[in-house]
Amino acid sequence: MAAGGDHGSPDSYRSPLASRYASPEMCFVFSDRYKFRTWRQLWLWLAEAEQTLGLPITDEQIQEMKSNLENIDFKMAAEEEKRLRHDVMAHVHTFGHCCPKAAGIIHLGATSCYVGDNTDLIILRNALDLLLPKLARVISRLADFAKERASLPTLGFTHFQPAQLTTVGKRCCLWIQDLCMDLQNLKRVRDDLRFRGVKGTTGTQASFLQLFEGDDHKVEQLDKMVTEKAGFKRAFIITGQTYTRKVDIEVLSVLASLGASVHKICTDIRLLANLKEMEEPFEKQQIGSSAMPYKRNPMRSERCCSLARHLMTLVMDPLQTASVQWFERTLDDSANRRICLAEAFLTADTILNTLQNISEGLVVYPKVIERRIRQELPFMATENIIMAMVKAGGSRQDCHEKIRVLSQQAASVVKQEGGDNDLIERIQVDAYFSPIHSQLDHLLDPSSFTGRASQQVQRFLEEEVYPLLKPYESVMKVKAELCL
């Protein structure tokens, strides 16, 4: 049975990233139509530049190519590739079939990587351009969430054990800070992308030097003109047959890092959902379990974690691919890159769409948070109580021993009897502590235990987050809708 299948058929496997999760716009960027249309555009740009620099290419040939950029006979191309065992030459023939007058000058002087690699770089750039505003929107939604809850005390956790208090907004800023680093890295790697350009079979530009009869300047002009037509500021000066596969490492490393950030955020949300302090959106008709109707599973956060793990592992592909590119190139890269580049971007696209949807509907339960604080705060307040007693004339050592005994009794009630923490009640009825009984409410005010959390939130948002989001103001209103 021949390899390949009808990918629109229910009898043929289709990647869930495309069929179930990723956005239509990201799927289109990695589609065959987008790819092969870009090949034709690159052939047109090459012909236009070659004509401008004096090669015998007519206006009629150029116009014929322009008129057929979208006229792609995919069936013919597939048949040609089956016959020739070469995808680029299959599309040269297919393009030439609908451009008979231009057929002889299509791909003039070029090698397969002229269309293959340059198209990949265009796709990487455009895919990054799709991700950047999506990530900015996630940051914006979380920034709104953090600002609104900047002063809401909550129990902090280290080692997932109760620690000092923080605020809900401050905790959210930990998430935002990681995503801001990801946004900066995505922008950097996007701006650092260079075009492969017009380089020939081993990167020496020998074929173009021959076409222009040894004119170095025209060869350099050709490279520059096509690079500018493709919208790049610069091209690699040095290439082998391909652009260095280190570029793929750079791009997928940034995406993998984004995956790590999203995994951490969504894990926190899942843990908070278990504590009943916070939940992701839950639709009115949504079913959490087929057997347990009360369940409210954090399905979206779980999906993000599941896909983020996949995204983090994909960076190993370009690392290994770059390491086995012998001399000017081997074909070890080809099949692998067809999979890992598309999957990385479709996965990143999915987790950003999902995280935006989550961040637009996060639900906080202040009463649950308050109750958990009441359970733990008495123990945390013991040092403040000791200091207040010393100020009232008591002995630190005597007070410490009193607190120690009462704390152990209260802990026994919590752990052995399943009761509430009654340390404060014990202190309130103990005559030894009568000098500070009137101060206990103040000493137990949760806001006095959150330090500068709310001020940190305000400063972080104003100095770091809002300036970073400013270039994306025009796209901030787009909502994230999930079908599944």
Rank of each mutant, 00 (worst) to 15 (best):
D441G: 09
L406Q: 03
G214Q: 11
D248Q: 00
M312S: 04
T204D: 03
T202G: 11
D192V: 09
D248K: 04
R137M: 15
N297P: 03
L46R: 00
F208N: 05
D129P: 02
K199G: 01
V226L: 15
V247L: 13
D87T: 01
I385H: 05
P153C: 12
Q408P: 04
V115K: 00
H93T: 15
L53A: 10
D398H: 09
V405R: 13
Q408M: 06
F145K: 04
Y34W: 10
G197M: 02
F345M: 11
W326V: 03
N353W: 07
S207F: 05
Q455A: 11
D215I: 06
S31T: 12
M292C: 02
A136C: 15
L252C: 14
D422K: 08
L155A: 00
C340T: 09
E417T: 07
L271Q: 05
N185K: 10
P293L: 03
D59I: 09
L128T: 13
S257G: 09
E279K: 08
T58G: 11
A77C: 10
A49S: 12
P471T: 15
I386G: 03
L42P: 02
E80C: 12
Q458C: 15
M65A: 00
R83H: 15
A230L: 00
R371F: 02
K477A: 10
L355W: 07
S253D: 03
G156M: 00
A103I: 10
D192S: 11
P366G: 09
E60Q: 11
L271W: 05
R452Y: 06
C483H: 10
L165M: 07
T267F: 08
T201V: 07
Q356G: 11
L55I: 14
P298M: 05
L132W: 14
R396E: 01
L132Y: 14
S434R: 13
C399E: 07
I373R: 02
G197V: 02
W43R: 00
L311T: 04
L406Y: 11
R426S: 09
D59L: 11
V247N: 09
S447V: 11
I106E: 00
E148M: 08
S306K: 06
A18P: 14
V429S: 15
L423G: 04
R300M: 10
E464G: 05
L44K: 05
K391T: 15
L362T: 09
I62L: 13
M387L: 10
C98A: 10
H263C: 13
L443M: 10
C305D: 04
L346Y: 10
G393H: 04
E417P: 04
T267H: 11
S306Y: 04
D332R: 00
D349R: 03
A291E: 02
Q325G: 12
I238G: 07
L130K: 12
E81V: 01
S151L: 09
S438L: 08
V465M: 05
K367Y: 06
Q210V: 09
I369T: 08
A77L: 15
T321I: 10
V88P: 04
M181H: 15
Y34N: 13
Y294T: 06
C305Q: 08
L179A: 10
H442A: 13
S140Y: 15
T58P: 06
L46H: 02
L468Q: 15
G451T: 00
L314N: 08
K470R: 12
G54M: 09
D349T: 08
R338W: 04
F232G: 04
K82F: 11
L444D: 04
N71I: 10
L121K: 08
W39I: 07
Q320C: 11
T158I: 00
R452W: 06
R171Q: 00
L130Q: 07
E277A: 04
E213Y: 06
R234E: 11
E228K: 15
V478E: 14
M76N: 10
T450S: 03
A206V: 05
C399D: 05
V324S: 10
R33P: 10
A90V: 08
S207V: 06
A90G: 14
G419F: 08
G116I: 04
T204V: 09
K264R: 12
Q325A: 13
L406G: 07
H263Y: 05
T239M: 02
A411L: 05
P366Q: 07
H437T: 13
D144K: 15
C399Q: 04
Q416K: 10
P281A: 10
A344I: 06
G203N: 01
Q210K: 14
I385P: 03
L211H: 06
G288Y: 07
R14T: 15
K264T: 04
S140N: 14
F145M: 00
V414L: 06
K470Y: 14
V413T: 13
E213V: 11
F460T: 06
V429I: 14
G54Y: 03
C173I: 03
I386T: 10
H437K: 11
K170R: 13
D32H: 15
L275Q: 03
A22L: 09
G394N: 09
F379K: 07
K295Y: 06
A273L: 03
K224L: 11
F379A: 04
L444S: 01
R85D: 00
A49I: 04
E481T: 14
E473R: 13
K35P: 01
Q205A: 15
D216P: 11
A235F: 13
T119R: 01
E302K: 04
L307N: 15
A143T: 09
L155I: 03
G96M: 11
H93Q: 15
A344Q: 04
G116D: 15
F157P: 00
E376L: 06
Q428F: 13
A49D: 01
E60H: 12
A163W: 02
M225T: 03
K402E: 05
R303W: 00
M89V: 03
R37N: 13
A342W: 08
Y21R: 00
L307T: 15
D332N: 01
L132G: 13
S207P: 07
A146P: 03
R371L: 00
S261D: 05
D317C: 07
V92M: 09
A344S: 12
D215E: 11
E328N: 04
P10V: 15
F28K: 07
